Amino acid sequence: KLLSSIEQACDICRLKKLKCSKEKPKCAKCLKNNWECRYSPKTKRSPLTRAHLTEVESRLERLE
């Protein structure tokens, strides 16, 4: 599967780190437990900047 097509777990399953069936409108866990089942939009991760990478590398060197 391509990364862009990976389905996201519902908010509660993601928060509780449960295996989500990803069914809509309610996944199996939410249906069974009568929880409100919501699927928040995916958040875009910002790409690493060179400055951040350099900072992490220098912190790693100090720890070694």
Rank of each mutant, 00 (worst) to 15 (best):
K1S: 15
K1R: 11
L2V: 14
L2Q: 14
L3S: 09
S4I: 12
S4M: 12
S4E: 13
S5Q: 09
S5P: 10
S5F: 09
S5C: 11
I6V: 09
I6W: 09
E7R: 05
E7K: 06
E7Y: 06
E7I: 09
E7N: 10
E7L: 11
A9P: 04
C10V: 02
C10I: 02
C10F: 00
D11W: 05
D11I: 05
C13D: 03
C13Y: 07
R14F: 02
R14C: 02
R14T: 07
L15T: 10
L15Q: 09
K16V: 00
K16I: 03
K16C: 04
K16A: 02
K17R: 07
K17W: 06
K17I: 06
L18P: 10
L18D: 01
K19S: 06
K19L: 06
C20Q: 05
C20I: 07
C20L: 05
S21F: 02
K22V: 09
K22L: 05
K22F: 05
K22C: 01
E23C: 14
E23Q: 15
K24Q: 14
K24C: 14
K24R: 13
P25L: 02
P25T: 08
P25W: 04
P25A: 03
P25S: 09
K26D: 09
K26E: 12
A28R: 15
A28G: 12
A28E: 13
K29S: 05
C30T: 07
C30H: 05
C30D: 03
C30I: 07
C30S: 00
C30R: 04
L31N: 13
L31H: 14
K32R: 15
N33F: 09
N33D: 07
N33C: 12
N33Y: 10
N34R: 12
N34K: 12
N34C: 14
N34L: 13
N34I: 11
W35Y: 15
W35F: 14
W35M: 12
E36L: 12
E36N: 13
E36V: 15
E36M: 11
E36A: 12
E36G: 12
E36Y: 07
C37G: 06
R38F: 13
R38D: 10
Y39H: 08
Y39N: 02
Y39M: 06
S40T: 08
S40A: 08
S40D: 02
S40M: 02
S40L: 04
S40E: 04
P41A: 09
P41Y: 05
K42S: 08
K42W: 07
K42T: 09
T43I: 14
T43C: 12
T43V: 12
K44L: 15
K44G: 00
K44M: 15
K44W: 07
R45F: 03
R45N: 00
S46A: 03
S46V: 01
S46E: 03
S46T: 11
S46P: 10
S46G: 03
P47A: 06
P47F: 01
P47M: 06
P47I: 00
P47N: 00
P47L: 00
P47T: 00
L48I: 09
L48T: 06
L48C: 05
T49M: 08
T49D: 01
T49Q: 07
T49K: 00
T49S: 04
R50D: 06
R50S: 09
R50K: 03
R50E: 05
R50C: 02
R50F: 01
R50V: 06
A51T: 04
A51R: 10
A51F: 12
A51N: 14
H52W: 11
L53P: 07
L53W: 07
L53N: 02
L53E: 09
L53T: 03
T54I: 05
T54P: 08
E55G: 10
E55R: 10
E55V: 09
E55L: 10
E55A: 12
E55N: 11
V56S: 00
V56R: 03
V56L: 10
E57V: 07
E57R: 10
E57P: 06
E57L: 00
E57K: 04
E57Y: 06
S58H: 14
R59P: 02
R59N: 06
R59A: 11
L60E: 04
L60G: 05
L60S: 07
L60A: 13
L60C: 12
E61H: 12
E61Q: 12
E61T: 13
R62Y: 04
L63F: 12
L63E: 04
L63K: 02
L63D: 02
L63I: 14
E64P: 08
E64K: 08
E64M: 15
E64C: 10
